[in-house]
Design a protein around this nucleic acid. Sequence first.
DNA 1: AGTAGTAACTGGT
DNA 2: AACCAGTTACTAC
Length: 323
Amino acid sequence: MSVPKINKIKKHLDPGNRYTVMLFVTFIGVTSLRKCCFIYHDVNKELHNDFARIDTVMMDKFLVNKRKLESADDFDENHHTKKYKQEANDYEALSIKTLIIRPLKWRDLRAENLDCDYGILFSKVNADRILCQCERMLNYNEGQLAKVKIFGKWHDIPRKQVAHGDPGLSYTFSNNTVPARPWTPFLDDIRDAVSDVTGHSFDFVLINRYKNGCDHMGEHRDDEKDLVHGYPIASLSLGQPRDFIFKHADSRGKKAKRSIEPLKLLLEHGSLLLMKHPTNTYWYHALPQRKRLLGVRINMTFRQMVPASNSGNKTTKPKAELP
DNA sequence: AGTAGTAACTGGT
DNA sequence: AACCAGTTACTAC
């Protein structure tokens, strides 16, 4: 666990006092220690020693209850400390490699100017827990930020959406610019898992929630000007499996220049789709309605964005470029 | 097997 | 990357 995260806890506490600390430890969406209570005499020292054993602590959800020792007369310090330590050991034994990241068995998807990889990143058990965490922790844009303007008309998007990313980044689509909210530890973990398995870093994630098969997304290519050109986009799917359709730009519409078969792909629970250059240049994609499907699907697309100050300025080199 | 009711698809805006 | 109207495809009886 990194020191900055420990400092985040420490600033809520006065060293030397005694506290009851309750916290949720989450590791890529898997809550291993739901709640534990123990008392620290020397917060500065103890927190560091004990928490350093844990890879990631979910800061958003931790609750620090300042209590005087005398108000916790039923509190058995030894018992709880021992229990915590055992759980921490168990937790530590579940390393990132055994818990989540298995070598992805990628399926290559190839067509003319289409190059994607698809595989299952999270097992059902882990994907279930991550989805559950998403439902508990994510908030979505509302009002103006949840609208798009198409052919002169404003519409509410038929799904829920939110973006998180590095400071200053935003995402523009259909006359709407959506600022990125800051990363959370939970999203950090998922992003890092996706980075590990793809070998690419990402500074932005767009999250879409489809409450059932009626929610959908129309055909589009991802907006080029905010994205680092040529950089792959990683799309993590959770929940209700949904069809995903690729259509070649030349085969759309009534006066299509050519006839190219669309590509249909089922995006499964826990799966990762890596869309590589030049897929996004030539192919539109969509998540069509499937009225019979009732389950929630949450999708996270991880991207590398052009910093806001450089957006639309082609003379400035993006901060990341493919080799 | 024929058909009514729904879902999916297409083109226009 | 939205909805709508018109058409086609599918499904269940």
